[in-house]
Design a binder for these strands. Structure first.
Lengths: 214, 214
DNA sequence: ACCTGAACACCGTTCAAGT
DNA sequence: ACCTGAACACCGTTCAAGT
Protein backbone atom coordinates (compact mmCIF):
# COMPACT_ATOMS: atom_id res chain seq x y z
CA UNK A 1 0.00 0.00 0.00
CA UNK A 2 3.02 2.26 0.24
CA UNK A 3 2.99 4.41 -2.89
CA UNK A 4 6.02 4.12 -5.19
CA UNK A 5 8.66 6.75 -4.67
CA UNK A 6 7.72 8.53 -7.87
CA UNK A 7 4.26 9.27 -6.51
CA UNK A 8 5.46 10.42 -3.15
CA UNK A 9 5.72 14.04 -2.27
CA UNK A 10 9.13 15.60 -1.93
CA UNK A 11 10.75 18.97 -1.47
CA UNK A 12 11.31 19.45 -5.17
CA UNK A 13 7.63 19.00 -6.04
CA UNK A 14 6.57 21.40 -3.31
CA UNK A 15 9.16 23.93 -4.38
CA UNK A 16 8.16 23.85 -8.02
CA UNK A 17 4.50 24.39 -7.13
CA UNK A 18 5.41 27.24 -4.83
CA UNK A 19 7.52 28.95 -7.48
CA UNK A 20 4.81 28.50 -10.10
CA UNK A 21 2.18 29.96 -7.76
CA UNK A 22 4.41 32.92 -6.96
CA UNK A 23 4.93 33.65 -10.63
CA UNK A 24 1.27 33.26 -11.52
CA UNK A 25 -0.38 35.04 -8.61
CA UNK A 26 2.25 36.75 -6.56
CA UNK A 27 3.46 35.94 -3.10
CA UNK A 28 -0.04 35.92 -1.62
CA UNK A 29 -0.90 33.08 -3.95
CA UNK A 30 1.69 30.87 -2.28
CA UNK A 31 -0.25 29.05 0.41
CA UNK A 32 0.44 25.66 1.91
CA UNK A 33 -3.14 24.60 1.32
CA UNK A 34 -3.01 25.34 -2.39
CA UNK A 35 0.32 23.60 -2.87
CA UNK A 36 -1.08 20.59 -1.03
CA UNK A 37 -4.15 20.58 -3.25
CA UNK A 38 -1.99 20.49 -6.39
CA UNK A 39 -0.46 17.23 -5.20
CA UNK A 40 -3.74 15.84 -3.83
CA UNK A 41 -2.39 15.77 -0.35
CA UNK A 42 -3.44 17.34 2.95
CA UNK A 43 -1.74 20.61 3.99
CA UNK A 44 -0.09 18.87 6.92
CA UNK A 45 1.84 16.59 4.57
CA UNK A 46 4.04 19.56 3.71
CA UNK A 47 5.27 19.77 7.28
CA UNK A 48 7.18 16.58 6.86
CA UNK A 49 9.28 18.18 4.12
CA UNK A 50 9.54 21.72 5.45
CA UNK A 51 9.62 22.85 9.05
CA UNK A 52 7.10 25.58 8.35
CA UNK A 53 6.16 28.09 5.68
CA UNK A 54 9.22 30.19 6.43
CA UNK A 55 11.49 27.27 5.58
CA UNK A 56 9.71 26.93 2.25
CA UNK A 57 10.21 30.61 1.50
CA UNK A 58 13.88 30.23 2.39
CA UNK A 59 14.16 27.38 -0.09
CA UNK A 60 12.51 29.50 -2.78
CA UNK A 61 15.04 32.26 -2.25
CA UNK A 62 17.85 29.74 -2.23
CA UNK A 63 16.72 28.32 -5.57
CA UNK A 64 16.53 31.84 -6.92
CA UNK A 65 20.04 32.65 -5.79
CA UNK A 66 21.52 29.67 -7.56
CA UNK A 67 20.44 31.40 -10.76
CA UNK A 68 22.74 34.34 -10.13
CA UNK A 69 25.57 33.66 -12.52
CA UNK A 70 27.61 36.72 -13.44
CA UNK A 71 28.97 36.95 -16.95
CA UNK A 72 32.20 35.07 -17.50
CA UNK A 73 34.91 36.40 -15.21
CA UNK A 74 32.44 38.90 -13.78
CA UNK A 75 32.61 37.55 -10.25
CA UNK A 76 35.21 40.19 -9.40
CA UNK A 77 33.42 43.14 -10.99
CA UNK A 78 30.85 44.90 -8.87
CA UNK A 79 28.80 46.12 -11.80
CA UNK A 80 28.61 42.70 -13.38
CA UNK A 81 27.64 41.11 -10.07
CA UNK A 82 25.00 43.79 -9.63
CA UNK A 83 23.44 43.29 -13.04
CA UNK A 84 23.52 39.51 -12.60
CA UNK A 85 21.59 39.85 -9.36
CA UNK A 86 19.18 42.34 -10.89
CA UNK A 87 18.48 39.97 -13.76
CA UNK A 88 17.41 37.27 -11.34
CA UNK A 89 15.29 39.63 -9.25
CA UNK A 90 13.51 40.78 -12.40
CA UNK A 91 12.92 37.17 -13.35
CA UNK A 92 11.17 36.57 -10.01
CA UNK A 93 9.53 39.88 -9.13
CA UNK A 94 7.08 38.29 -6.70
CA UNK A 95 9.93 36.87 -4.66
CA UNK A 96 12.12 39.96 -4.70
CA UNK A 97 10.53 41.43 -1.60
CA UNK A 98 11.48 38.49 0.62
CA UNK A 99 15.06 38.34 -0.62
CA UNK A 100 16.58 40.87 1.81
CA UNK A 101 15.29 39.06 4.88
CA UNK A 102 16.23 35.59 3.66
CA UNK A 103 19.27 35.83 1.41
CA UNK A 104 21.65 35.35 4.32
CA UNK A 105 19.90 32.11 5.21
CA UNK A 106 20.90 30.51 1.92
CA UNK A 107 24.22 29.12 0.73
CA UNK A 108 24.39 30.89 -2.62
CA UNK A 109 23.15 34.06 -0.97
CA UNK A 110 26.00 33.95 1.53
CA UNK A 111 28.45 33.34 -1.31
CA UNK A 112 27.17 36.35 -3.16
CA UNK A 113 27.25 38.55 -0.07
CA UNK A 114 30.79 37.42 0.70
CA UNK A 115 31.93 38.38 -2.79
CA UNK A 116 30.25 41.78 -2.72
CA UNK A 117 31.54 42.69 0.73
CA UNK A 118 34.97 41.44 -0.33
CA UNK A 119 35.00 43.70 -3.36
CA UNK A 120 34.06 46.68 -1.22
CA UNK A 121 36.71 45.79 1.34
CA UNK A 122 39.27 45.64 -1.46
CA UNK A 123 38.46 49.25 -2.31
CA UNK A 124 39.52 50.18 1.19
CA UNK A 125 36.25 50.44 3.07
CA UNK A 126 36.02 49.29 6.69
CA UNK A 127 34.20 46.01 7.36
CA UNK A 128 31.21 47.89 8.76
CA UNK A 129 30.96 50.34 5.88
CA UNK A 130 31.48 47.59 3.32
CA UNK A 131 28.59 45.71 4.92
CA UNK A 132 26.34 48.76 4.93
CA UNK A 133 27.14 49.46 1.30
CA UNK A 134 26.47 45.87 0.31
CA UNK A 135 23.09 45.93 2.05
CA UNK A 136 22.30 49.27 0.45
CA UNK A 137 23.14 47.78 -2.93
CA UNK A 138 20.82 44.83 -2.44
CA UNK A 139 17.98 46.94 -1.05
CA UNK A 140 18.32 49.33 -3.94
CA UNK A 141 18.01 46.60 -6.53
CA UNK A 142 15.04 45.05 -4.75
CA UNK A 143 13.32 48.42 -4.56
CA UNK A 144 13.79 48.97 -8.26
CA UNK A 145 11.96 45.73 -8.97
CA UNK A 146 9.18 45.70 -6.40
CA UNK A 147 8.30 49.41 -6.67
CA UNK A 148 8.53 49.35 -10.42
CA UNK A 149 6.26 52.25 -11.49
CA UNK A 150 3.03 51.11 -13.02
CA UNK A 151 3.47 47.60 -11.69
CA UNK A 152 1.24 46.21 -9.02
CA UNK A 153 2.18 43.08 -7.14
CA UNK A 154 -1.13 41.36 -7.67
CA UNK A 155 -1.81 38.30 -9.73
CA UNK A 156 -5.26 38.99 -11.07
CA UNK A 157 -5.07 40.92 -14.30
CA UNK A 158 -8.47 42.63 -14.08
CA UNK A 159 -7.80 43.82 -10.53
CA UNK A 160 -4.48 45.18 -11.71
CA UNK A 161 -6.08 47.12 -14.51
CA UNK A 162 -8.57 48.60 -12.10
CA UNK A 163 -5.84 49.73 -9.71
CA UNK A 164 -3.84 51.28 -12.53
CA UNK A 165 -6.94 53.02 -13.78
CA UNK A 166 -7.65 54.46 -10.36
CA UNK A 167 -4.10 55.68 -10.06
CA UNK A 168 -4.30 57.34 -13.45
CA UNK A 169 -7.56 59.01 -12.45
CA UNK A 170 -6.10 60.28 -9.19
CA UNK A 171 -3.02 61.70 -10.83
CA UNK A 172 -4.64 63.34 -13.82
CA UNK A 173 -7.37 64.93 -11.72
CA UNK A 174 -4.89 66.69 -9.48
CA UNK A 175 -5.24 70.49 -9.40
CA UNK A 176 -2.66 71.75 -11.90
CA UNK A 177 -1.78 74.84 -9.92
CA UNK A 178 -0.95 72.91 -6.76
CA UNK A 179 0.86 69.94 -8.25
CA UNK A 180 2.52 71.13 -11.46
CA UNK A 181 5.53 68.87 -11.14
CA UNK A 182 3.60 65.73 -10.32
CA UNK A 183 1.32 66.26 -13.29
CA UNK A 184 4.30 66.91 -15.50
CA UNK A 185 5.76 63.58 -14.39
CA UNK A 186 2.48 61.66 -14.32
CA UNK A 187 3.54 59.41 -17.19
CA UNK A 188 6.46 58.18 -15.17
CA UNK A 189 4.31 57.14 -12.24
CA UNK A 190 1.79 55.36 -14.42
CA UNK A 191 4.07 53.25 -16.54
CA UNK A 192 7.51 53.25 -17.94
CA UNK A 193 8.24 54.63 -21.37
CA UNK A 194 11.42 52.56 -21.48
CA UNK A 195 11.93 49.79 -18.99
CA UNK A 196 15.57 49.16 -19.82
CA UNK A 197 16.63 52.73 -19.26
CA UNK A 198 14.73 52.72 -15.98
CA UNK A 199 16.88 49.86 -14.75
CA UNK A 200 20.06 51.26 -16.27
CA UNK A 201 19.52 54.53 -14.46
CA UNK A 202 18.64 52.67 -11.30
CA UNK A 203 21.83 50.62 -11.36
CA UNK A 204 23.86 53.72 -12.12
CA UNK A 205 22.29 55.52 -9.17
CA UNK A 206 23.09 52.70 -6.81
CA UNK A 207 26.62 52.13 -8.03
CA UNK A 208 27.31 55.85 -8.01
CA UNK A 209 26.32 56.00 -4.38
CA UNK A 210 28.23 52.90 -3.40
CA UNK A 211 31.41 53.66 -5.27
CA UNK A 212 31.79 57.41 -4.90
CA UNK A 213 32.38 57.30 -1.18
CA UNK A 214 34.62 60.00 0.17
CA UNK B 1 -31.62 53.55 22.73
CA UNK B 2 -29.30 55.35 20.34
CA UNK B 3 -25.97 55.74 22.14
CA UNK B 4 -24.71 59.29 22.69
CA UNK B 5 -22.23 60.53 20.12
CA UNK B 6 -19.35 60.23 22.54
CA UNK B 7 -19.84 56.48 22.75
CA UNK B 8 -20.21 55.97 19.07
CA UNK B 9 -17.42 54.66 16.94
CA UNK B 10 -15.70 57.00 14.53
CA UNK B 11 -12.73 57.13 12.23
CA UNK B 12 -10.51 58.74 14.82
CA UNK B 13 -11.06 55.98 17.37
CA UNK B 14 -10.37 53.30 14.79
CA UNK B 15 -7.29 55.09 13.58
CA UNK B 16 -5.82 55.52 17.03
CA UNK B 17 -6.32 51.83 17.83
CA UNK B 18 -4.76 50.86 14.53
CA UNK B 19 -1.73 53.05 15.12
CA UNK B 20 -1.31 51.76 18.66
CA UNK B 21 -1.51 48.16 17.46
CA UNK B 22 1.04 48.83 14.76
CA UNK B 23 3.44 50.32 17.23
CA UNK B 24 2.97 47.56 19.78
CA UNK B 25 2.93 44.49 17.56
CA UNK B 26 3.88 45.49 14.06
CA UNK B 27 1.75 45.62 10.96
CA UNK B 28 0.53 42.05 11.39
CA UNK B 29 -1.02 43.08 14.68
CA UNK B 30 -3.31 45.49 12.89
CA UNK B 31 -6.45 43.47 12.23
CA UNK B 32 -9.99 44.69 11.88
CA UNK B 33 -11.18 42.13 14.38
CA UNK B 34 -8.81 43.27 17.09
CA UNK B 35 -9.61 46.93 16.55
CA UNK B 36 -13.29 46.09 16.75
CA UNK B 37 -12.74 44.18 19.99
CA UNK B 38 -11.06 47.20 21.57
CA UNK B 39 -14.22 49.22 21.06
CA UNK B 40 -16.54 46.33 21.92
CA UNK B 41 -18.04 46.33 18.50
CA UNK B 42 -18.33 43.73 15.74
CA UNK B 43 -15.71 43.76 12.98
CA UNK B 44 -18.33 44.77 10.45
CA UNK B 45 -18.94 48.02 12.25
CA UNK B 46 -15.62 49.26 10.89
CA UNK B 47 -16.90 49.01 7.34
CA UNK B 48 -19.18 51.89 7.93
CA UNK B 49 -16.21 54.16 8.63
CA UNK B 50 -13.69 52.73 6.17
CA UNK B 51 -14.36 51.16 2.81
CA UNK B 52 -12.03 48.29 3.58
CA UNK B 53 -8.75 47.55 5.33
CA UNK B 54 -6.80 49.25 2.56
CA UNK B 55 -8.60 52.51 3.24
CA UNK B 56 -7.64 52.24 6.88
CA UNK B 57 -3.99 51.70 5.98
CA UNK B 58 -4.20 54.72 3.68
CA UNK B 59 -5.50 56.80 6.57
CA UNK B 60 -2.66 55.59 8.79
CA UNK B 61 -0.10 56.68 6.21
CA UNK B 62 -1.88 59.98 5.80
CA UNK B 63 -1.76 60.64 9.54
CA UNK B 64 1.92 59.77 9.49
CA UNK B 65 2.64 62.17 6.66
CA UNK B 66 1.08 65.09 8.48
CA UNK B 67 3.90 64.69 10.96
CA UNK B 68 6.52 65.49 8.35
CA UNK B 69 7.47 69.04 9.22
CA UNK B 70 10.87 70.12 7.97
CA UNK B 71 12.88 72.47 10.10
CA UNK B 72 12.00 76.12 9.70
CA UNK B 73 12.54 77.20 6.12
CA UNK B 74 13.68 73.71 5.21
CA UNK B 75 10.91 73.07 2.74
CA UNK B 76 13.21 74.18 -0.05
CA UNK B 77 16.22 72.16 1.02
CA UNK B 78 16.40 68.58 -0.14
CA UNK B 79 18.51 67.40 2.77
CA UNK B 80 16.22 68.95 5.36
CA UNK B 81 13.16 67.48 3.68
CA UNK B 82 14.88 64.11 3.59
CA UNK B 83 15.79 64.10 7.25
CA UNK B 84 12.31 65.30 8.20
CA UNK B 85 10.80 62.37 6.33
CA UNK B 86 13.31 59.96 7.81
CA UNK B 87 12.47 61.13 11.32
CA UNK B 88 8.84 60.26 10.77
CA UNK B 89 9.61 56.89 9.22
CA UNK B 90 11.80 56.05 12.20
CA UNK B 91 9.00 57.07 14.53
CA UNK B 92 6.67 54.58 12.82
CA UNK B 93 8.90 51.71 11.70
CA UNK B 94 6.02 49.26 11.41
CA UNK B 95 4.27 51.52 8.94
CA UNK B 96 7.31 52.41 6.88
CA UNK B 97 6.92 49.45 4.56
CA UNK B 98 3.48 50.48 3.35
CA UNK B 99 4.46 54.08 2.74
CA UNK B 100 5.79 53.72 -0.82
CA UNK B 101 2.59 52.12 -2.09
CA UNK B 102 0.27 54.54 -0.31
CA UNK B 103 1.98 57.89 0.03
CA UNK B 104 0.56 59.14 -3.27
CA UNK B 105 -2.94 58.38 -2.05
CA UNK B 106 -2.66 60.95 0.73
CA UNK B 107 -2.81 64.73 0.66
CA UNK B 108 0.30 65.47 2.69
CA UNK B 109 2.12 62.73 0.79
CA UNK B 110 1.30 64.38 -2.50
CA UNK B 111 2.45 67.73 -1.12
CA UNK B 112 5.74 66.25 -0.07
CA UNK B 113 6.25 64.50 -3.40
CA UNK B 114 5.44 67.70 -5.25
CA UNK B 115 8.06 69.59 -3.30
CA UNK B 116 10.74 66.95 -3.77
CA UNK B 117 10.13 66.57 -7.48
CA UNK B 118 10.06 70.35 -7.78
CA UNK B 119 13.45 70.67 -6.13
CA UNK B 120 14.91 68.08 -8.47
CA UNK B 121 13.36 69.80 -11.49
CA UNK B 122 14.91 73.07 -10.35
CA UNK B 123 18.32 71.45 -10.55
CA UNK B 124 17.69 70.83 -14.20
CA UNK B 125 16.53 67.23 -14.33
CA UNK B 126 13.82 66.15 -16.75
CA UNK B 127 10.38 65.43 -15.31
CA UNK B 128 10.91 61.70 -15.71
CA UNK B 129 14.35 61.66 -14.12
CA UNK B 130 13.21 63.94 -11.29
CA UNK B 131 10.39 61.51 -10.61
CA UNK B 132 12.69 58.49 -10.63
CA UNK B 133 15.13 60.23 -8.30
CA UNK B 134 12.34 61.20 -5.91
CA UNK B 135 11.08 57.62 -5.79
CA UNK B 136 14.61 56.37 -5.29
CA UNK B 137 15.00 58.79 -2.41
CA UNK B 138 11.85 57.58 -0.70
CA UNK B 139 12.61 53.90 -1.26
CA UNK B 140 16.10 54.40 0.09
CA UNK B 141 14.85 55.95 3.31
CA UNK B 142 12.23 53.27 3.78
CA UNK B 143 14.82 50.55 3.22
CA UNK B 144 17.08 52.08 5.84
CA UNK B 145 14.31 51.81 8.38
CA UNK B 146 12.66 48.49 7.58
CA UNK B 147 15.90 46.57 6.92
CA UNK B 148 17.60 48.11 9.88
CA UNK B 149 20.29 45.53 10.79
CA UNK B 150 19.51 43.62 13.95
CA UNK B 151 15.89 44.71 13.87
CA UNK B 152 13.10 42.29 13.24
CA UNK B 153 9.65 43.49 12.36
CA UNK B 154 7.86 41.40 14.93
CA UNK B 155 6.08 42.55 18.00
CA UNK B 156 6.74 39.77 20.44
CA UNK B 157 9.96 40.42 22.33
CA UNK B 158 10.82 36.79 23.12
CA UNK B 159 10.32 35.73 19.50
CA UNK B 160 12.55 38.58 18.44
CA UNK B 161 15.33 37.52 20.80
CA UNK B 162 15.11 34.00 19.45
CA UNK B 163 15.41 35.16 15.85
CA UNK B 164 18.36 37.38 16.67
CA UNK B 165 20.00 34.53 18.52
CA UNK B 166 19.57 32.22 15.54
CA UNK B 167 21.04 34.80 13.24
CA UNK B 168 24.03 35.27 15.50
CA UNK B 169 24.54 31.49 15.63
CA UNK B 170 24.35 31.20 11.85
CA UNK B 171 26.81 34.01 11.25
CA UNK B 172 29.37 33.08 13.87
CA UNK B 173 29.39 29.41 12.87
CA UNK B 174 30.28 30.22 9.27
CA UNK B 175 33.53 28.60 8.03
CA UNK B 176 36.15 31.28 8.44
CA UNK B 177 38.08 30.32 5.33
CA UNK B 178 35.06 30.60 3.05
CA UNK B 179 33.43 33.71 4.45
CA UNK B 180 36.19 35.87 5.89
CA UNK B 181 34.53 39.16 5.01
CA UNK B 182 31.11 38.24 6.37
CA UNK B 183 32.62 37.12 9.65
CA UNK B 184 34.64 40.29 9.83
CA UNK B 185 31.43 42.28 9.42
CA UNK B 186 29.23 40.04 11.57
CA UNK B 187 28.76 42.73 14.19
CA UNK B 188 27.18 45.01 11.63
CA UNK B 189 24.59 42.43 10.60
CA UNK B 190 23.66 41.60 14.16
CA UNK B 191 23.16 45.03 15.59
CA UNK B 192 24.31 48.54 15.12
CA UNK B 193 27.20 49.91 17.10
CA UNK B 194 25.98 53.43 16.44
CA UNK B 195 22.47 53.95 15.17
CA UNK B 196 22.86 57.62 14.37
CA UNK B 197 25.90 57.14 12.16
CA UNK B 198 24.07 54.34 10.37
CA UNK B 199 21.34 56.76 9.38
CA UNK B 200 23.74 59.59 8.64
CA UNK B 201 25.67 57.40 6.28
CA UNK B 202 22.46 56.16 4.77
CA UNK B 203 21.18 59.64 4.06
CA UNK B 204 24.54 60.62 2.64
CA UNK B 205 24.52 57.62 0.35
CA UNK B 206 21.09 58.44 -0.96
CA UNK B 207 21.68 62.15 -1.40
CA UNK B 208 25.03 61.49 -3.03
CA UNK B 209 23.35 59.30 -5.58
CA UNK B 210 20.47 61.68 -6.17
CA UNK B 211 22.48 64.87 -6.39
CA UNK B 212 25.62 63.82 -8.20
CA UNK B 213 23.90 63.08 -11.45
CA UNK B 214 26.01 63.64 -14.53
C1' DA C 1 -26.90 56.95 10.03
C1' DC C 2 -24.80 53.41 12.26
C1' DC C 3 -24.34 48.78 13.80
C1' DT C 4 -25.35 43.50 14.37
C1' DG C 5 -25.82 38.38 13.02
C1' DA C 6 -24.76 34.94 10.34
C1' DA C 7 -22.19 33.20 6.99
C1' DC C 8 -18.41 32.55 3.45
C1' DA C 9 -13.99 31.56 1.99
C1' DC C 10 -10.00 31.40 3.31
C1' DC C 11 -5.18 31.17 6.33
C1' DG C 12 -0.88 28.53 9.21
C1' DT C 13 -0.12 25.21 12.69
C1' DT C 14 -0.30 21.36 16.38
C1' DC C 15 -0.98 16.89 17.83
C1' DA C 16 -2.23 12.30 17.90
C1' DA C 17 -2.93 8.64 15.04
C1' DG C 18 -2.39 5.62 11.07
C1' DT C 19 0.48 2.64 7.65
C1' DA D 1 9.49 7.45 6.99
C1' DC D 2 5.68 9.68 5.41
C1' DC D 3 0.98 11.10 5.56
C1' DT D 4 -4.03 11.80 7.39
C1' DG D 5 -7.97 13.55 10.52
C1' DA D 6 -9.58 16.57 13.42
C1' DA D 7 -9.18 20.58 15.57
C1' DC D 8 -7.55 25.34 16.93
C1' DA D 9 -7.08 30.03 16.42
C1' DC D 10 -7.20 33.12 13.54
C1' DC D 11 -8.03 36.34 8.95
C1' DG D 12 -11.07 40.00 5.56
C1' DT D 13 -15.46 40.55 3.53
C1' DT D 14 -20.57 40.37 1.97
C1' DC D 15 -25.27 40.80 2.69
C1' DA D 16 -29.47 41.23 4.82
C1' DA D 17 -31.46 42.87 8.78
C1' DG D 18 -32.18 45.72 12.81
C1' DT D 19 -32.78 50.44 15.32
Amino acid sequence: VTPPAAERLNREKILSSALALAEAEGLDGVTLRRIAAEWKVTPMALYWHFKDKGALLDAMVERMMTEVVPADGGAADLRLLTTALLRVLRAHPALAEIVPDRIMRTGPGLDLAERVVGLLRAVGHSPELAAQLAVFLLNGLVSLVIRHPGEVAVGDESVRQTLIGEKRARLTSLPADEYPHLIEAADYFLGLPDEESYYERGVDLILTAVQRRS
